[in-house]
């Protein structure tokens, strides 16, 4: 009983806590950066950071393309790491872009969905790590069968991504991301629709 409790605490500290901290850091860092930019008189840069953030998030989807084998170069693990970092950094820039302007609903709904997607991404990472750990013993079997260590690692990684719990998670993560994408696209279109920088200079 006590051992199970200790295990849970250990699990929380090792796997959940780092992602909670990353999320808190994301929010705090973006607020601090925004405040610094405004204090230095560079508040307008936020407008362009939105474009940069969206760009980074779009680029991060290269992992999804690699996963469905549209191309096969590079390790899937490396693409996943890139997906996570690019999405985190993209979210950071978009949070600065959003500032604390509570006037319009659409951009704020997009920001909210983006943050939910980030949390969902963190959850996926934890789940994947747990599934991979549970099938780690299969790696030695594969090596004994004559598969190279690198290949065995790749197979275990891929197997973990296809685990049942991961499929269930993905069934949530994808629609959330799609919702965020929809709101972001609508925000971009409406901004371009009304933007004053089309006009005479």
């Amino acid at each position: 009983m006590v051992t199970r409790k200790v295990m849970r605490i250990k699990l929380f500290i090792e796997q959940v806590l780092p992602f909670v901290l990353w999320f808190v850091l994301l929010v705090i860092l973006s607020r601090v950066s925004d405040a610094i930019l405004h204090a230095l008189g560079y508040g307008d840069i936020g407008e362009y950071l939105g474009i940069l953030g969206v760009g980074l998030i779009l680029i991060s989807f290269i992992y999804s393309i690699r996963k469905v084998k549209v191309f096969k170069a590079g390790s899937l693990r490396g693409f996943l790491t890139f997906h996570e970092w690019a999405a985190w950094l993209g979210a950071y820039f978009i949070l600065i872009h959003g500032g604390i302007h509570l006037h319009a609903i659409l951009p704020w709904a997009a920001i909210l969905l983006m943050l939910i997607s980030v949390v969902s991404g963190f959850t996926g990472h934890i789940l994947h790590k747990r599934v991979k750990k549970s099938i780690e013993h299969e790696k030695s079997k594969l090596i004994k069968e004559g598969v190279s260590e690198q290949e065995a690692e790749n197979q275990i990684f891929r197997a973990a991504t296809m685990a049942k719990s991961m499929l269930k998670w993905r069934a949530v993560h994808r629609p959330l991301t799609a919702l965020f994408a929809g709101l972001a696209i609508m925000h971009i279109i409406s901004s371009l629709f009304y933007a004053t920088w089309w006009g005479p200079k």
């Binding site: 319009a104 609903i105 659409l106 951009p107 709904a109 994808r174 629609p175 799609a178 919702l179 994408a181 929809g182 709101l183 696209i185 609508m186 925000h187 409406s190 901004s191 009304y194």
Partner: peptide, 21 residues
């Protein structure tokens, strides 16, 4: 999901432009 969101948000922006954007 993407198309639905786009559709709903378009309608919302069209009818409530001030509140939405």
């Amino acid at each position: 999901s993407l198309l639905l969101t786009l559709g709903f948000s378009f309608v919302a922006v069209y009818y409530f432009p001030h509140e939405m954007v």
